[in-house]
Design a protein around this nucleic acid. Sequence first.
RNA 1: GCGCGGUUAGCUCAGUGGUAGAGCACUGCCUUGACACGGCAGGGGUCACAGGUUCGAACCCUGUAUCGCGCACCA
Length: 874
Amino acid sequence: MSELAKAYEPQSVEDKWYAWWLEQGCFHADPASPKPGYSIVIPPPNVTGVLTLGHVLNNTIQDILARRARMTGHEVLWLPGTDHAGIATQNVVEKMLRKEGVMKHRDDLGREELLRRIWDWKEKYGGIIITQLKKLGCSCDWERERFTMDEGYARKVQEVFVDLYNKGLIYRGKRMVNWCPVSLTALSDEEVIPTPQKSYLYHFKVEVMEEPGTFLEIATTRPETIMGDTAVAVNPKDPRYAHLIGKHVRRPLPVEDQASLPIIGDEAVDFEFGTGVLKVTPAHDKADYEIGQRHNLPVIDIMNPDATLNGLAGADFVGLDRFEARKEAVEKLRQMELLVEEKPYENNVGFSERAGVPIESRLSEQWFLKYPKTTEARDAVRKGLIKFFPERWEKVYDHWLENIQDWCISRQLWWGHRIPVWYGREDGLSSSFNGALGATRPTACQIESPGEGWVQDPDVLDTWFSSWLWAHDTMDDATRKKFYPTSALVTGPDIIFFWVARMIMAGLEYTGEVPFRDVYYTGIIRDKGGKKMSKSLGNSPDPLDIIAKYGADGLRFGLMRIAPQGQDIKFDEQQIVEGRNFCNKFWNSCRFRLMQGEVDPNADPTKHALSIFAQDLLAKLDATITRIDAAYAEYRFSEVAQALYDFVWGDFCDRFIEAAKSDFTNPARREGTLAAMDYVLNRVLLLLHPYAPFITEELWHGLGFGEGSIQYAPWPAAGGAAPEPKADTIFRAVTAARTLRATFNLPSNKRLRWVFQPSAEWVKDEQAALHVLLHAETMEFVEARPEGAMASCPTEIGVFFLPLEGVVDPETEGTRLAGEIGKVRAEIEKVQRKLGSDTFVQNAPAEVVAEHRQRQADWENRLEALKSARDALG
RNA sequence: GCGCGGUUAGCUCAGUGGUAGAGCACUGCCUUGACACGGCAGGGGUCACAGGUUCGAACCCUGUAUCGCGCACCA
């Protein structure tokens, strides 16, 4: 390519290069490679998922790490895949089938047919997010794409179950679990989201049977469970009620069976709360269940699995939904004149993460896991075997492991890994939920059926029970040998318990090693108002729309520039505009370079005489590389982006290119300047490539830096260029001169006749540069202050003069100078005050004091110059 | 109740002891030989508040306020 388009057009280059990379097998990891391995496993997105900005952030970071690792000489494996996402996927497909009228309930289709249809759905739609990741530029090894229900992986999951069962860590138990009445399955504690709810605290009274006329007042938020009450509890230390323990009250509901309930004493009752009297419903509350256990209370389960009330709730309630039942119960109490008050109350209610409805605590028989390797997992992070970035998540992780509870791993679903347990008798298995599975039946835990007459447990495993093996069981032996433990994990802190902690335990249990070395936690992307982005709120833009508007590189770069380590990100499309603009700016600097002639891919600026600007540029490139490498070492991605932005836009475009514009017609400078540009552009392309893979590949080829993909070109090292501070003094002086002209409201397109009295010999070499930087009509260098009325501006390199006549009003210049003098005096005063303090001079480090002295001298020089300018004005 | 994080320019955010920064927005000028997705210049901040440590604090310590998150509790 000899000519570039005037503006960068991402659409025309992105698909081209992505296809080329795939064709070349660029992303494929070779386990036999002699290079050191670097590996990342993708946090597998739900197979139902579509790309969100969260995915964009997360996967851009992984791609950056992968691409940089390739450039630093590693054999890179970025292993992609998707998660079967049990509840989510089954919900989606069931909903679709109901909408299509194919079924009303999953029993209409039966297990096999529903599974077949979910698989169909998965084959058809499950690849959407993968396609979207490709649009983003992700360099995953697609030949190794895995799915959590792939045959081999699924078998591993079952093997692990059998193994943990044989080790005695998996057991079946009848316990209070979190039950989702919509998904009709048990959930783990982590899948329950405590959510503040505005509700009411109802007070009602019950009469003590042994003491007619004496009433106990009970406070509850759930009057609809009164029918399941089997006791009333008070604290035995509560002087108000202790004497009533052992007596009885009459339960008001259901009306047709007003059973008498014992008044019991239990220390769990907080007598500060409500009235200090607690109704005990062992079937529908975890704490009540425990009280019931202690006091041998009967359990009356008044709810069906879908949280409608059953026959035990009485004729007035049967069939009602729990919330309708609540109203009904309150109404009944009111009619019986037992309702004392209902007052507004805010409490936390556990919601089902997936279905978004309040969960029910429900007694049921489920499979539980006593976690393996908890101590080792804690130590792995405590002792630095695994490092968290930012570090503060280590405390959260540690705290969770310290208080870890057994994991309810069975789900009453069909989509997932079926529990490899077989029962020797067929009865009692009609429904997936009932808790009626006999404990005495013969049980076999194995993957294959033990034979005729054995029936497999109908439940499947929690999705995370398969995800926790993702780091190692997605790899074959050769791959694992080369790439496990993985190098880094990039994920959100919201799944630190769901996934990260469990993977560490599984890794330690099944490989004897930690599954990864570094864990980088991204921030959460929020909208401008600070709200979490979600589909339901409609505040989440479609990343593909953004890519269409600004290009994948613009999205990546813009997002990464505002993604500080571990802080949530307030998303603003303007940031992506800036990413796009940056790409375009860089594109045009390359375009400008091509206009000056052919690029030398092997340019070596050290072989040429270099201008101070070229020397300065090389030194700043070195500093930028150092800054970038340091930022990578701490996963400070926004710092890397900012360093690139500062260098490319500020140092390279605004300063170097502008100063160099006079070099191309100057035989003494042309070659050196071109060599410096080529050298720098080459390295900027490399440094930028992880963030903006498409445009850098396009320009790498467009400028002729190589035939192969840029992603395998070696990462640049800082070259040890000596700093050249002269360039900066020129730029500061130029700014001062431009400010001078701006003060007089001269139109930018009016070229002026500048006069300059240099204060150092070397400045005389920079006449052409000053000319072009000031966009001057003429740039005359003089030895002495010129005659006549002049506006002037003293700088570090000399004094700029503008003839006043016809250009500048002397009065304006006088006012301006007076203002300047005032400012400088204030600065001098500030420095003097500091230097006048003995304690400062005595205690501050010598170099700081010296720096202040220098600053004072500089300001004083400037003051003198300004004064003489004022005097010369007349 | 416990823990974590935030509070810096109108907005979004950098900045871990030595002259308060960037981008956007704003004002003025400009289609200057890459770029108007651009250039040049400018205005704008008692760094949430109160104490303390220090010669010196946006930065370190203590406390307060406020916003957000997590854990526990939640009759």
